[in-house]
């Protein structure tokens, strides 16, 4: 099935949920509201003519200043019919949460953890939502656009501070020049 036909089918079924359909270089992007994402995904997975059995990728994108700050991208592919569609669920900043799709595709498990780690998006119903690439005690969400590339100003790794103190004493005692 052509990706645009899938988008049409989605429109028939979930007209009130679809925000817009875009096309760029043969790929079709469908923006949807976040409330019924689980239903939409289940429909795409279980409809015999669409049969999206492979969740290629799931990631977040940050657009500060927009009405819906975050987008969660679902990159879906069908092994049987070899067609692809990209779903974009819009998530607002004041309630950055969306239903988890782990119950449909197991591969979503780590991708959702990573999106949570990097953007602070909460996936409701996720079996094990922890930080994955960053340490457990990390503060902030690095892939948000307001997170600076080199860390926040005034931030320094604490042991280095201690090291500097030590060196100060060393120079007082003329151990190192």
């Amino acid at each position: 099935m052509e990706p645009l036909e899938i988008a049409e089918k989605l429109k028939e079924k979930f007209l009130s949920e679809i925000i817009d359909v875009k096309q760029f270089r043969d790929q079709v992007f469908v923006s949807v509201k976040k409330e019924r994402i689980l239903e939409i995904c289940r429909f795409l997975r279980e409809d015999p003519e669409i049969h999206m059995d492979f969740l290629v990728d799931l990631c977040g994108v940050d657009y500060p200043g927009r009405k819906y700050r975050f987008e969660v991208i679902y990159n879906l592919f069908s092994m049987k019919f070899r067609h692809r569609i990209i779903l974009k669920a819009l998530v607002p900043e004041d309630d950055p949460s969306i239903d988890s799709v782990v119950s449909i595709w197991n591969t979503a498990n780590w991708h959702e953890r990573e999106a949570c780690d990097m953007f602070g998006i909460i996936f409701n119903g996720h079996p094990d939502l922890r930080r994955i690439l960053l340490p457990e005690d990390w503060e902030g969400f690095p892939l948000r656009k307001d997170y600076p590339l080199t860390g926040k100003e005034g931030w320094e790794y604490r042991p280095y501070e201690e090291l500097k103190e030590l060196h100060k004493k060393d120079s007082e005692w003329n151990i190192v020049s």
Partner: peptide, 20 residues
């Protein structure tokens, strides 16, 4: 302006770049 997903087959599997 736009976004797209392009995958290639690297020895380990499917390596995809999603560029916005």
């Amino acid at each position: 302006e736009g976004e797209l997903y392009v995958a290639t087959e690297v020895p380990k599997g499917e390596l995809g770049f999603y560029i916005v």
